[in-house]
Design a protein around this nucleic acid. Structure first.
Lengths: 167, 167
DNA sequence: GCGGAATAGATGAGTCTTCAACTACTGTTC
DNA sequence: GAACAGTAGTTGAAGACTCATCTATTCCGC
């Protein structure tokens, strides 16, 4: 006897706690989404890391910095932009600093704050990595999808973002 | 001057390497998908971990084992099912063994192999965690989507899986 | 049935993430 | 302007993941 605990472990309806279990169709949709998301994120990260030595997490930090005026940003703002905790970002910036790609600068407006500044070396590293990343996204994502599917993907993402909060 | 390196850093067309940069619509679709995926996975993992002490990664291992005859599975097969590397699974099973939720057993058919076996305590832990996980998936995913969006999500996931390999 | 290639899994070092302090500064209230 | 609460960011320890390496076993060709 197997027990698929994502569906009801007993007869539906006999469940005292009233958990709203997934039906077979929801189950399949969820699994397909979950597996494809995990595989895609993993694949992109792996290919980028192998080709350039830059993980996807680091890449997002460099991109965020490169898109701002002066290529610098407050640590907290950068953390929010990268969906990262403060702590995680702080560690990551330390490691990027060791590589000479980012440096820290005390924030002039607020003595508590720090600015992360993208260096020229950091920008060069990003320029080298960008084609690899974009090619990965194209190959593994957009090349596989029809325009309708791309539209659906965007709609889906934006709907979920409204609920999860852009934070 | 900002530089969005996901689009062409220079004029499109002046790009010597011929990188197929993303246009504005693709960019938005990609960002929406990426952010929503990261936020959703993070949210589900966090809520599950806080409420039950079981991370999503561990949860998937327990679910996979619970679904098999005899609640046991070869390590490699389990790794594949959980989209995990052999090494990662080996470490994870060791930690689950310390909790008394899984035990290892030499595979009778193949002296090289090991079976991971779900214990009764492990199954009980899973039964306790399942409602929390399912409720999370419902609240943060299905409750937010129309039936059409759910269908699109499934279609999208399955399309990407065909390319990325169910592995 | 012997020898080499391939497979299954474990292990340890290095890296990354999380969590809970902790320091330092700002803003607010009296 | 002193006291206190709140905010910004860092730090260190513990847990988790990756990669390369290692051992044990099986498979295959002869």
């Amino acid at each position: 006897m197997t027990a698929d605990v994502s569906r009801a472990p007993r007869d539906p309806g006999s469940d005292a706690e009233g958990t709203r279990w997934l039906d077979a169709g929801e189950q399949q949709a969820w699994r397909a989404w979950l597996y494809s998301a995990q595989l895609l994120l993993d694949r992109l990260d792996r290919e980028l890391t192998h080709a350039t030595g830059i993980s996807h997490a680091y890449y997002e930090i460099l991109v965020a910095l490169s898109e701002t005026e002066g290529r610098r940003m407050r640590m907290s703002e950068l953390a929010d932009r990268c969906l990262s905790s403060r702590s995680r970002l702080s560690h990551a910036v330390s490691r990027l600093e060791e590589r000479g790609w980012v440096r820290r600068q005390v924030c002039p407006d607020d003595g508590r704050g720090q600015l992360a500044v993208l260096t020229d070396d950091g920008f060069a590293a990003l320029e080298a990595a960008a084609p690899v990343h974009v090619e990965g996204v194209r190959t593994h994502l957009f090349d596989q999808l029809s325009p309708q599917q791309v539209a659906a993907m965007r709609d889906l993402g934006e709907t979920l973002l409204r609920h999860l909060g852009t934070r």
